[in-house]
Amino acid sequence: MQTEIIIAGFGGQGVMFAGQVLAYAAMDKGEEVTWIPSYGPEMRGGTANCTVVIADEEIGSPLVKNPPASIVMNLPSYDKYEPLVKPGGVLVVNASMVDRGAKRDDITEIFVPANDIAEEIGDRRLANMVAAGALIACLPILSIEDLEAALEAHMPGRHKRLLPKNYEALRKGAEFATEHARKAK
């Protein structure tokens, strides 16, 4: 059993960190996991992405062309990854940063206004956790509780005061996705 997730967006949107939270959560559950970033000049602006692979056996390739699950935080990432998601897969789209609709109907696209929800919580930088919550609501491999436990266990001490808002962001994202999925049916 193996699941691959690509998270993409502008540098500074927290896509690397969101991927690391998933990786920590998977590791703490005893799974095998790889997290690999794009590490080129895009780190200093432009689009950045990371790939997380979660499996119950030794992981082969840490990179994947057609992920079954993906988060795109901006329009260039949406344009790049929408065609690549595996048929039947899930794509969480940050609707706050994207001004077009879906081009595919063979995948589940979930439009989450991640920036707006994050601002409601009180910090725009939580958009990544809102999107991560939305994705996890659609994936059986990890739960919101797993992500919360990972944040608690691995966030450096000086950031611990930020935990409640991160939890809130994860839950709001998950709620939004669940609601969206219900409406779609």
Partner: peptide, 10 residues
């Protein structure tokens, strides 16, 4: 190679 240098694993 760079990918093993840059990636994170348990």
């Amino acid at each position: 190679d760079g990918s093993i240098g840059q990636m994170m694993e348990p």
